[in-house]
């Protein structure tokens, strides 16, 4: 399953709920304001690091670049463009957008 999160972890609990309800082996794609969760030194870093044990974490490059965060991505986060986003959707049997 693919989980798509688009909210900053500092604004809403969306990421937290997603990580709690994603089954082992699922993928999580951070887009829009959720890409801040993929950056080093943020308070969300620990959560993402811990999640990497069971989940594959992706972040949308164009959204990181737009926000000046492209150089701050933590190790282990896989970067994709919109084509990669499409691939993630087709490679997983279903997807949930955590609005």
């Amino acid at each position: 399953m693919l989980h798509i999160v688009n909210k900053s972890p500092f604004e809403r609990n969306t990421l937290e709920s997603c990580l709690r309800l994603a089954t082992k082996g699922s993928a999580v794609l951070l887009t829009e304001d959720a890409v801040y969760a993929a950056t080093t030194g943020s308070a969300a870093e620990g959560k993402i690091k811990a999640a990497m044990a069971d989940l594959k974490i992706y972040a949308l490059s164009p959204d990181l670049q737009a926000r000046g965060m492209a150089g701050r991505v933590m190790d282990g986060v896989n970067l994709v463009d919109y084509g990669g986003f499409v691939d993630l959707v087709t490679e997983h049997s279903n997807c949930q957008s955590w609005l």
Partner: peptide
């Protein structure tokens, strides 16, 4: 919201990939 922009970019990429 960015939603419509994101959807547009996604749809365009999907079409370009032949979906």
């Amino acid at each position: 919201h960015q939603a419509s922009d994101s959807a547009y970019n996604f749809v365009k990429a999907a079409l370009e990939k032949g979906h």
